[in-house]
Design a protein around this nucleic acid. Structure first.
Lengths: 123, 123
DNA sequence: CTTGACCTTCCCCTGAGGTGGAAGGTTGAT
DNA sequence: ATCAACCTTCCACCTCAGGGGAAGGTCAAG
């Protein structure tokens, strides 16, 4: 959490504009710490700053964002399920390619194809 | 594979500069098709264009890139293993958060924390 | 001859979440 | 008085793999 990040959060609407000292320095209230802890916690579970802003907007509209947060959490969990399956399939394909590649002789690898492990000769 | 993509591949060194016709049009040899198939295959298994360029560099240096390709494949597979474990842990945490969040009353959600599901009160 | 469909180079834009630096002002300690 | 270490604003830049579109040249068909 750098000073730069705080300014960025301010520009994207995650932090309210703080009061300024007489010389123009930002004078944050203590309460910003809770806000920042929320942002960190939300980021840690994979929410984007845009989603986090949406949650904060609920709160600033005076309503508890809990139901919305649960939706986001469930949506993200479902996304992850999908993503994990995709990545596992890719990993399995990589392992198969590796197994097969080990049985191939580099001497038989055609320059034009770059590498026959990834680019087998067209049938 | 758009024309734009071909030009991009050329600028990043994945394609050799093709000959030109008298009027300046690119005049690709047939062999570019094998190259493009290689690029597609390599991208499909998750290699970046930078890695693909490295593989091609081996080939253009006159050596079969097979051993290097196997390293990349194994590295990517290992990365995926790690990534999958991380994502699964995150998903599990999201499910736990969801379970717990359902038991919490929105009425008890403190405005300062934004939402107590993600940001429980510091003890 | 003209039209439409190509091609060329060039530069800027995308999204996410910031980071880096320049130019200038302020503060607290020496 | 000066110095370092802050702060301010603003603008640019980073990754990644291209996409959009302007301004201008070319090719084949009608």
């Amino acid at each position: 959490m750098t000073a730069k990040a705080l300014r960025y959060y301010e520009t994207v609407g995650l932090l309210p504009e703080p009061d300024r000292t007489a010389s123009g320095y930002r004078d944050y209230p203590e309460t910003v710490l809770d806000r920042l802890r929320f942002i960190r916690a939300a980021q840690a579970v994979g929410l984007t700053l845009g989603e986090i802003r949406g949650v904060i907007a609920f709160r600033e509209a005076g309503r508890p964002p809990c139901a919305h947060v649960l939706e986001l959490i469930e949506g993200r969990a479902a996304d992850l399920d999908t993503r994990i399956v995709e990545l596992a399939a890719l990993r399995d394909e990589l392992r198969r390619l590796d197994e097969r590649g080990r049985t191939l002789s580099p001497d038989a690898c055609s320059p034009g194809l770059v590498c026959h492990i990834l680019n087998p000769a067209a049938h």
